[in-house]
Amino acid sequence: MMKKVTLLLVCSLFIVGCAREPEVKDQSLQGKNMIRLNTDGTAHSATMDQSAAQQAVNDIKQKQAIRDAVAVNTKNKLFLAYQVKHMERFHKKQIEKEVQKQLKERFPQHQVVISSDLKLFWKTNELKKQLQKTRMGERKLNEEIEKLKKLSEETA
């Protein structure tokens, strides 16, 4: 019995250990980016104008079915993540269409990407906070938004 338990523990440790690896790498990468940002980011970039994002959030929050929203934008990209009220989750697809349409009309010069996923909501929030804390170049922010977009398009 004891032997089995130890074997099992070793097994699960292996699995957990291996599973965490990419994340660790990710973190260390992020660290590097932060350092780079802090050293040379200030030289050629000012804080991005987030007024379009702010406007989008205000607009979307007005909708009855939406509980919360958060957005970031660059000159030609706008990413908005929102949370649907729980009883409205049945109509998530339809709400997504409405939000997409509304934002497209409102910001015709932006490429609008939206997501109702909780993970994207967390990530966008994080990105927004990071924007407020550290200065981030247009290019870097574009990359981040592209990453969010890719994540939001993943299925199964």
């Binding site: 994340e23 996923d117 909780l118 993943e154 299925t155 199964a156």
Partner: peptide, 9 residues
Amino acid sequence: MYFFDFTEQ
């Protein structure tokens, strides 16, 4: 979702 890059989907 919280600790890895997984979405609700």
